[in-house]
Amino acid sequence: MEKHSIDHLEGICSQVRRDCLRMVHAVQSGHPGAALGMCEYVVALFFNEMEHDSDFKMDGKGEDLFFLSNGHVSALWYSVLARSGYFGVPELGTFRKINSRLQGHPATEEGLPGIRIASGSLGQGLSVGIGAAQTKKLNQDDKLVYVMMGDGEQQEGQVWEAAMYAAHHKVDNLIAAIDLNRQQIDGPTEKVMDLIDLGAKWEAFGWQIVNIEKGNDMASVLEGLAKAKSLTGQGKPVMILLHTEMGYGVDFMVGTHKWHGVAPNDEQLENALGQLEETLGDY
């Protein structure tokens, strides 16, 4: 994969954030908060880190794979997929509309290139990613599997079934990440259901932990991903704790759960777009 400068990657992030907000605004539904917060990480994966082919093949043999377990962050993934060539950028305008391939939550049913499994009902993506990673091993395919989860999602029991399994079976071709924005729909995670020390939990389950303290700083994200990659192949799965700000990039959206699943109105959109440079051209 061709490597890009940090400036270039940040430029892509600005455009992707514009896409996300415009998509959510157009249908007055969707989840802008985490999409803005996870932007640097997902852009870094698709534009810099993963070896992947935008000429999509479901089997993904010989490619790094990405699974979005917290599927409500679909706008971000769709924008990144479109901007990296999986499908035409104008199709972003169909997000969440009738007869669209861009369903509210990611799905394979309509055949959108880039999506390998449906997600949205939380807690399932890590299991799927581990399964795909084990198939890679059986196929002598040395590429990696990346799984993205939310922090509220850590409240789902299946996540911990998967955690136990991956360590027991030494699934070390897997890099999972938790979007640690400390927010969920009903409020801060510490008030809804305290996650306490997630790093200690995952470590106790037998995983290697990488903290990316500045998850909205591209240089930190790239550095953290390099560290995570260096830990693969050592008999243990790898977990990135990605510390982000929900709503990052738009001053009135940042750091609050209030924009988890709320669309901006016309005025708010204009205000937000004024804070984000149009680098690649709006769809």
Partner: peptide, 28 residues
């Protein structure tokens, strides 16, 4: 043995694993 996976008492995980294993051509 290399094609058999003991999952433990964790059926939800088992279904997810199986779904993931199909990606790359396995028949779980």
């Amino acid at each position: 043995p290399e094609r058999f996976f003991q999952v433990g008492i964790a059926e939800a995980n088992m279904i997810g694993l199986a779904a993931g294993m199909t990606i790359g051509g396995k028949i779980p």
